[in-house]
Every structure is written in C-alpha cells, then in structure tokens.
C-alpha cells in the first residue's frame, strides 16, 4: 500500500467521501421530497413505486451526508463520528421498539378497541438511524 493510503487507514477515515459530497447529497434529498409531494401529479410511476423511490432517494442523500468528511477532519471529529454512530444505533433501536407500544397507548386513550399494530419499519428505521446520527454528531460538536 502507498504511504498516502496507509496514512488514511491509520487515521481511520479511508471510508469517508470528500467534503463536497455533503452538498451533492442535497440533490437526491430534494428530488425525493419533490417526488413524494408531487407523486399524484405524475404519470410515469404508480403511487407505491413513487413513494418507495422518494424514500430511497432521501435515504441515499442522508447516507452521503453521513459519510462525507468534515472540512477540517481530525482525530476528535473522527472520535465524535464513531460516538454518534454508536448513540444513533442505540437511540434508534429503542425508538423502534417503543414506538408501537407508545402509539397503542396514545390511541387507546382516545379510541376504544384499538389494536396493537406493528408497521413495517424497513425504510423508516434506517431513516431514524441516520437522523439520530446527524443530531448526535452535531450535538457532540457543539459540546466544546
């Protein structure tokens, strides 16, 4: 391996994308949001495919933001990135587990005969992980 590559591996940031990808990532997120709100007005895709595609575009955008390098990367930010990922995983999992019961509890307060309903968390749970990661990473960076 070349010296430059070795240095990157040592720093632990060899998997990260260039900083400008943070701005490139806005494109799929915006496309996803636009597609989600305008799906009824287009004729190319059916409703389910359009919704799913919008969700995946937003996920792709957030993944690019998550994996983009900071402007001035150093060991502290790498440390915070790892910490944020760990917290995001735990917070996301707790949220996924608690949400159906919380929803059931809240809806049974207002309606009788409510059933416990577990919705498909496939896309939604990944989105939670990403949001949690970004929030935690931002929060740690503010904690100077």
């Amino acid at each position: 391996m070349k010296d430059k590559q070795l240095e990157k591996v040592r720093k632990g940031d060899f998997l990260l994308l260039p900083h400008y990808m943070k701005w490139v990532a806005i494109l799929p997120v915006l496309c996803g949001i636009v597609l989600f709100f305008l799906k009824e007005y287009q004729q190319f895709l059916n409703d389910d495919v359009a919704t799913s595609m919008a969700g995946h575009l937003i996920l792709l955008g957030f993944l690019l933001i998550m994996l983009s390098r900071d402007k001035f990367p150093d060991e502290r930010l790498l440390n915070l990135r790892h910490k944020a990922m760990a917290y995001a995983f735990i917070h996301g999992m707790i949220l996924v587990i608690v949400t159906p019961f919380l929803t059931y509890l809240l809806s049974s307060l207002f309606r009788s005969g409510t059933e416990l309903y577990f919705m498909d968390y496939g896309v939604f749970s990944i989105f939670i992980f990403q949001i949690m990661y970004l929030i935690n990473y931002w929060r740690f960076k503010q904690d100077l």
């Binding site: 001035f72 060991e75 502290r76 440390n79 960076k141 100077l144």
Partner: peptide, 14 residues
C-alpha cells in the same frame, strides 16, 4: 488539528 480540538483539550473535554 482544528482550533476547536485544542479548545476541547484545554477544557479537558477531550
């Protein structure tokens, strides 16, 4: 490193 990192080290936060 970044200036924020030096600040964090000085304040014993990192």
């Amino acid at each position: 490193v970044s200036r924020q990192t030096i600040n964090s080290i000085e304040k014993s936060r990192y």
